[in-house]
Design a binder for these strands. Structure first.
Ligand SMILES: [Zn+2]
Ligand SMILES: [Zn+2]
Ligand SMILES: [Zn+2]
Ligand SMILES: [Zn+2]
Lengths: 156, 156
DNA sequence: CTCTTATTGATAATGATTGTCATTAAATCA
DNA sequence: TGATTTAATGACAATCATTATCAATAAGAG
């Protein structure tokens, strides 16, 4: 069995891919990682597949799915489900740990937010009810000022 | 056009169905509403379809979907997406308005929770970033004390 | 270079949800 | 009550994101 310590391996100029033990560094995964560096919004696997393709890299949709899942399971990227239950992915800011997202419903523009008070509250509520192994989801959706402006203009 | 004021119409002994303007009272929707009264957990449309059937009522899966959506859009029942993006439905406590859920990952046991401070926080954060038309999702998951007990016993 | 096996890609399959459309039956009214 | 209107239903096809298969490829250890 090929063992390998967890760590960074540069597989493409300017892009770093975190690998779990036993994982291999491939150009496909590097291509996905690179595409994620270019965008700052939450995007679906299909959209990321298109972005990768438009950059000239050729990766199958299946592999895009697998790469995103691998990255997400390591915590390298964030996942959130939109109101349709579709998974959206995003490479978030420098490992700021647990955080939440304020996402524009129209353009995907995302702001990372943290709220220690909220974290405390959810935990307290759950423990008070006797729950253990607690986790939570918290996402804020809205229309960013840019999109709101556009909508107003378009209506004229 | 058949106009009708919004209100309650009893369509089955012991069950009340809220109707929007223009909607009709049918035995199928009543059957779904009755099934929802019997359960206290969040369930998928498919599961509710089975429950309705097991009670002797015959409603097509398509209609179960439509009934649940209609009830949810009025706010008569709550919807939440599980980690797979599947919609789960539940008839919640007496119209307590906006609230959130603490759900057992194992058995589905649910506790309704409210947190004015969290509501204020999400709204403030979003507005501070210039967002409008704001909404949010907040769900807490864990293992209820009952399930935790069972797990400990089973392991012996 | 050789070998092991993780990874890929083409494709089929899954599974929840939605669309279609002819038929049924509430609600309204003569 | 019987006729009329059209919301609602049901059987079934269609979507669409995601997963499963499996043979072919290639990373990386020795
Ligand atoms: Zn994030
Ligand atoms: Zn949190
Ligand atoms: Zn509720
Ligand atoms: Zn809330």
């Amino acid at each position: 069995m090929a063992k390998q310590a967890e760590g960074k391996a540069s597989v493409s100029p300017g892009t770093q891919v975190t690998l779990a033990i036993g994982q291999r560094s491939t150009k496909q995964r590097a291509a996905v990682a690179t595409a994620l560096r270019d965008i700052d919004d939450f995007r679906s696997a299909q959209e990321i597949f298109e972005i990768v393709k438009s950059r000239g890299d050729n990766v199958s949709l299946t592999t895009v799915y697998r790469s995103l899942q691998a990255m997400a399971s390591i915590g390298d990227i964030d996942v959130l489900l939109n109101s349709e239950g579709e998974a959206l992915y995003r490479r978030c800011g420098q490992r700021s740990g647990h955080h939440h997202h304020l996402v524009c419903r129209k353009c995907g523009f995302t702001v990372e937010v943290e709220g220690p008070a909220v974290e405390r509250w959810t935990h307290d509520v759950a423990r008070k009810q006797g729950f253990t192994d607690i986790n939570h989801t918290l996402d804020i959706f809205g229309v960013c000022s840019s999109c709101a402006r556009k909508a107003k203009t378009a209506r004229v």
